[in-house]
Amino acid sequence: MTKGKKNIVYDLLRGSFLTDESSFKNWRVLIFVVALLLMMIYSAHSADAKVVQIAELNKKKRELRAEDVDTSTQLMKMKLESSIRDKVKSKGLYPAKKPPQKIKVTYSKE
């Protein structure tokens, strides 16, 4: 390498581009880049947190859906005529031997 290139590399490693008279514009660019990096890191962490939250909510949704199916199955079993007969049999109620009759009510105009 030539002496000019060696000086440039040495100045870069020493950080003289931050301490020279014209370094104010370098500091502005450096602070801007650091701010962008911090925003990028924050946004990545925020996205990861949302992904974890979505996974937890999906798991809870599946559990609640399974509970709903179990509950509706139990309700359907409770509504069956045979289960209702078994429950009221202990109270002395039995199905009617003859079908019910309709009662008609007529009004007379007087």
Rank of each mutant, 00 (worst) to 15 (best):
M1V: 07
T2W: 00
K3T: 05
K5G: 00
K5P: 00
I8A: 04
V9D: 02
V9S: 05
Y10V: 01
S16H: 11
T19S: 09
T19A: 01
D20S: 15
D20W: 03
S23L: 03
S23E: 00
K25I: 03
W27F: 02
W27H: 06
W27N: 01
R28T: 03
V29Y: 13
V29K: 15
L30I: 05
L30S: 05
F32I: 07
V33R: 07
V33F: 06
V34M: 12
V34S: 10
L36G: 06
M39S: 12
M40I: 10
I41K: 06
Y42W: 13
S43L: 07
A47T: 01
A47G: 03
A49C: 05
K50V: 08
V51G: 04
V52M: 08
Q53I: 00
A55C: 02
K59W: 00
K60Q: 13
K61S: 12
R62A: 12
E63Y: 01
L64K: 08
L64W: 02
L64M: 04
R65F: 13
R65L: 12
A66C: 05
V69C: 06
D70S: 07
D70P: 01
T71F: 03
T71H: 05
L75T: 10
L75S: 09
M76I: 12
K79N: 10
L80A: 14
E81C: 11
E81Q: 15
E81G: 08
S82F: 03
S82H: 01
S83N: 15
I84R: 08
D86T: 13
K87C: 06
V88E: 02
K89A: 09
S90E: 12
S90C: 06
S90N: 12
G92F: 01
G92C: 05
G92E: 00
P95M: 02
P95A: 05
A96I: 01
K97A: 12
K98R: 15
P99A: 14
Q101Y: 07
V105M: 06
S108C: 07
S108F: 13
K109N: 08
K109Q: 08
K109Y: 09
E110N: 14
E110V: 12
E110R: 09
